[in-house]
Design a protein around this nucleic acid. Structure first.
Lengths: 200, 200
DNA sequence: GCATTTATGTACCATTTCGCATTAAAATAA
DNA sequence: TTATTTTAATGCGAAATGGTACATAAATGC
């Protein structure tokens, strides 16, 4: 049984992807519905009826981005053997994402933590989305450390968790600040080395 | 010899301070000249003739904030004895700043690295300001480590520098994300402990 | 007093903003 | 064919935006 009514003429996933790219570069406040309409090819009423308000669209993109990001955490922690290997994998894939999978010299960092974070104090929905994402990531890191080092003491566990988390957050900020990729990669390697030494 | 013309009726420093508070909370794009006019008590033409365009005002605030921040680095590194003491001092004063010197549960993080960073990809002036601030801070951290540990090997130096820098950036992001102060302070302490262990 | 200089305040302008009302189009169901 | 449902497109509208012109006010220099 087919769906009634006139069928959609656009690919929803593609539209969300191009919305996300726009928000990622410009931020929520600097992006207008006209901007979104222009890059997606839809007109404002279509956007509005399909996705709701501008903030709704933004949250849609944030959640899509966060999902891909937490998947990267899961993938790295599931596949690799040692904690250091896992973190190296993780940071490599994060860096690739933060540079928009391209070889551009300028990266955009993290949509959630280098971009949406600006809106947190003035937008409750965005704020709680960010806070819960941070929570998921922190727990994911903690769990993966415990899995590999079941007898680790609480102090070391906290130290390594916070170090990994700060590195994760710092990477996005530094990339969006314009730090070049070579320096970023060495920064990530140094963090992983620090973890290694802490556990030695 | 007195200045010619009608004298200013406002205190420039106070006006800049209240502009900064507004930008800090809302970001550049979400803050209108009307907002600024309302909170400063000046009207738009006065603002414009005294400070230039909105972006000019923003950069003025960014530089003022960055100056205070780098002063905190200098103060911490000049006064304290051990590296760990210095970092503890530094992070304490940064946390106080990031929570706006108040006991509010919600902090705004860093004006430069948790706020202006969003504008970097679309605003060249903001971008280069941020990049150079990051550079100043990194050099300041590096120098202070060398001062205390003249014989430190390059690898350890890089590790500790990057760890401190990531912690610094991470604090601002976490605070703006809504993490409560107790957790933030324990996060900072854990980072300093990690530095201590790396150097042991 | 009178010109000059600087600051203030009102009002304005062109553009952009988000959102919606309304109409036209394209599909299915009966 | 006709009614119904869903989407698309045009265009409106009220408000806000960054920025400025212009008249007025308050000080100094001569």
């Amino acid at each position: 049984m087919k769906k009634r009514g006139r069928p959609r003429e656009f690919d929803e996933e593609a539209v969300v992807a191009s919305m996300e790219a726009l928000f990622w570069q410009q931020g929520l406040a600097a992006t207008s519905l006209d901007d979104i309409a222009k890059t997606t090819g839809l007109n404002r009423p279509s956007l509005y009826s399909a996705f709701g308000s501008k903030v709704d669209m933004y949250l849609l993109c944030l959640n899509a981005f966060a999902k891909r990001m937490t998947d990267l955490f899961q993938a790295a922690f599931d596949q690799s053997n040692t904690l250091e290997d896992a973190l190296n994998d993780l940071f490599s894939s994060l860096i690739a994402t933060y540079y928009c999978e391209s070889d551009k010299t300028f990266g955009l960092g993290c949509l959630v933590f280098s971009n949406a974070v600006v809106e947190a104090p003035t937008n409750e929905r965005v704020q709680s989305m960010i806070e819960s994402t941070l929570d998921v990531i922190r727990k994911s890191v903690r769990t993966s450390i415990i899995k590999r080092l079941p007898n680790v003491d609480e102090e070391t566990l906290s130290m390594v968790t916070e170090l990994s988390l700060s590195t994760f957050l710092g990477l996005g900020i530094q990339i969006r600040s314009g730090v070049n990729r070579v320096d970023i990669e060495s920064s990530a390697r140094n963090s992983v080395k620090a973890v290694g030494r802490l556990l030695a």
